[in-house]
């Protein structure tokens, strides 16, 4: 397969660009997903021309706090599944998508879990194994000069000590994950 390369379009041109490629023979829909870049969210779709075996990747960039995009489901019925997945995992709203039922997650879960702003709950409910230190049985009082190690990439509120543990559990219980 050869690649048509990467095409970047504005969200407003998304539907038109995809419809144009479809009329050029890119009739096979492969996948659609999103990439969290922090302030922005990129959505990418890969489509294939099954006759020439050329693939195309079409990208668009949305603001992370208002991620709305026209649904491809009128042009590619198979995009429905991927759009439902991107909606529940990344919080993209697809305008015109008829079926918005979540695929895997409960609707009440809260923040889309694949957003970087949604901390991994498994990191909150478990102690970091790296915090363990060799127990000192040769001397009294341990080694005070050793600095406390912290797990990389875990929000402060998730770190387990007597104070933060309570805060993390309270936030989790209220469903407000930062």
């Amino acid at each position: 397969m050869t690649s048509h390369g990467r095409t970047d379009v504005s969200p407003a041109d998304w539907l038109e660009a995809m419809a144009g490629l479809r009329s050029e023979g890119f009739v096979l829909f492969d996948f659609l997903t999103a990439v969290d870049r922090g302030a922005t969210l990129e959505v990418v779709a890969r489509i294939v021309n099954p006759v020439t075996r050329v693939t195309a990747m079409v990208w668009t960039t949305l603001p992370a706090d208002a991620a709305e995009l026209a649904s491809l489901s009128d042009y590619y019925l198979g995009a429905t599944w991927c759009e439902r997945e991107a909606a529940e995992m990344f919080g993209v709203t697809f305008i015109g998508l008829a079926d918005t039922r979540p695929l895997l997650l409960r609707a009440s879960l809260g923040k889309p879990p694949m957003r970087k702003s949604a901390p991994l709950v498994a990191r909150a409910i478990r102690d970091w194994p790296g915090a363990a230190q060799a127990t000192d049985d040769g001397r009294q009082g341990g080694n005070p000069s050793r600095r406390r190690q912290l797990p990389p990439g875990v929000p402060e509120v998730f770190l387990h000590d007597d104070v933060n543990g309570d805060v993390a559990s309270a936030e989790l219980a209220s469903g407000d994950q930062r």
């Binding site: 790296g130 363990a132 049985d137 040769g138």
Partner: peptide, 21 residues
């Protein structure tokens, strides 16, 4: 028992217990 593997593991799948003598 230097703990480097435990601390660098992205999935937190390693656990290590040690003591000093």
């Amino acid at each position: 028992s230097c703990m480097i593997c435990v601390r660098e593991c992205p999935t937190w799948c390693i656990e290590l217990d040690s003591h000093t003598e």
